[in-house]
């Protein structure tokens, strides 16, 4: 049995749904398709729960399941094959064999920060993202947002304060 009960299943679902969709979307380039696929994977895992063995790294297991499903879809998609006309789809999978665990880690930590950032007020989040993620300097942010450098710094301090309390809660 992979999940002890439905509550455990739901917890796993909630923690992984968004990062898995993002990952699926990086392969399939379609939001709808990605969401359907991830939901499908979860549905089948639950249906077969009684026959499944527990795994060591559940996150990596889920990412692998989604990856396999996504490539299954691509292979089945005749239009895609036709577009590739003549090229083999063999090599595609190998490219993603970087390391499933580092990939899992990347998406799960992206999810963590992005879910922490959901707690930031809009302006504060914007400044934090520009500085921390896009690497703009305070002066550059101040100029582009039409605010003073001091205000940029205050937004950053506020962002860190909120992230710190939210992190402690999570």
């Amino acid at each position: 049995m992979l999940f002890v009960d439905k509550a455990a299943f739901k917890t796993v679902f909630n923690a992984h749904y968004v990062p898995l969709c993002n990952y699926a979307n990086s392969i399939l380039r379609s939001d709808n398709l990605s969401e359907d696929l991830v939901q499908d994977v979860f549905f089948h895992l639950w249906k077969n729960n009684s026959t499944l063995e527990p795994v060591d790294n559940l996150s990596a297991f889920l990412f692998t399941a989604v990856k396999n499903k996504a490539f299954e879809h691509i292979r089945a998609d005749k239009a895609y094959k036709k577009a590739l006309s003549g090229y083999s789809t063999e090599g595609i999978e190998d490219k993603t064999e970087i390391s499933m665990s580092s990939l899992t880690h990347k998406y799960m930590s992206m999810e963590r920060l992005s879910s922490l950032m959901r707690h930031l007020p809009p302006k504060c989040k914007n400044v934090f993202a520009l500085h921390k993620l896009n690497g703009l300097t305070y002066a550059e942010i101040a100029a582009s947002e039409g605010i003073s450098i001091k205000t940029v710094e205050n937004h950053m301090i506020k962002a860190l304060k909120i992230l710190r309390t939210e992190y402690a809660k999570s």
Partner: peptide, 22 residues
């Protein structure tokens, strides 16, 4: 967490509706 660069979040990390999906 704060020292890791998450450049991907800006370009394209999306927030899917997990409640609706559930």
């Amino acid at each position: 967490e704060l020292q890791t660069k998450h450049t991907d979040i800006q370009d394209g990390y999306k927030d899917y509706d997990k409640n609706a999906a559930w």
